[in-house]
Amino acid sequence: MISPRAAQLKVMACPACGLVVEDGQPEAARCPRCSARLTRRRPNSVARAWALLIAGMIFYIPANLLPVMHTSLLGRASDSTILQGVVEFWLAGSYGIALVIFVASVAVPCSKFLILGLLLVTTQRRSTWAMRERARLYRLVEVVGYWSMLDVLVVAIVAALVKFQSLSDIEPRTGILFFGLVVILTMLAAMQFDPRLIWDSEPT
């Protein structure tokens, strides 16, 4: 048996508290339980998600090209980017840590760009291809997305610790600002995308 969808039964779920409410009023009604504004789908979902996603992709370029950290250690000063940090760990033999940072700061953001882009394109084309798998990809993006904040927090902790004035000092650099913005923008893009749109192209 295929379960009916909300529109077929003329009901909708409150986006805030989940209560099932009749879908009668044409203009914006409010939820009788929590008084949140009732919407059938997240408003302007696809356009907003695209805008946030594209902004995130643009910021990802300076995030990788600009240094994220400035280290001055016993008179030797150097700037390092995210990828240089990964390579440093790898060459030092800390393969596990190199992998963790690579996953959090390269693999996760890049797969988020790809997955969200794929979801948006297929939704706009009202594709019925692999709907269950696409729904699963969306949930994956939601769960994994915030781990990218790792690099920002590592730089914060390291910069807070290493403060020995002339002897040794670590400071954050502009790259980390762009990287943090990429994480926030892609998280917002994922929140704007409405996974129910995937199923709206299902033939009834």
Partner: peptide
């Protein structure tokens, strides 16, 4: 109602 696909 399923939050992810609107099934009731």
């Amino acid at each position: 109602i399923c939050e992810h696909c609107d099934s009731v």
